[in-house]
């Protein structure tokens, strides 16, 4: 299970990641290019991807549009 968290501090290959409001844990960031403030997906102690905040914000809007305009059967 991978969970999203925010990078709050970077030291070499390790970063402190904050999940939700509180919990902070260390994760290995050798598989991604990240900066403090980025959101990452963390799986088994490794950040595996940087999440696109813009995409996340737009997801619902995009889907709504798709359902309203591109949705079957009026596609």
């Amino acid at each position: 299970m991978a969970i999203p968290g925010k990078v709050i501090e970077i030291t070499g290959d390790k970063a402190k990641i904050q999940y939700g409001e509180g919990v902070v844990n260390s994760a290995n960031i050798s598989l991604v290019e990240v900066r403090v403030g980025d959101y990452v997906l963390v799986h088994a102690g490794f950040a595996i991807q940087v999440l696109s905040e813009a995409e996340a914000m737009e997801t619902i809007a995009l889907w709504n549009e798709m359902l309203n305009t591109g949705g079957f059967p009026d596609a």
């Binding site: 290995n28 799986h43 595996i48």
Partner: peptide, 11 residues
């Protein structure tokens, strides 16, 4: 694990 964990092992 699948591709989700294999890169960690590799790293």
């Amino acid at each position: 694990g699948f591709e989700t964990t294999a890169p960690a092992t590799a790293s």
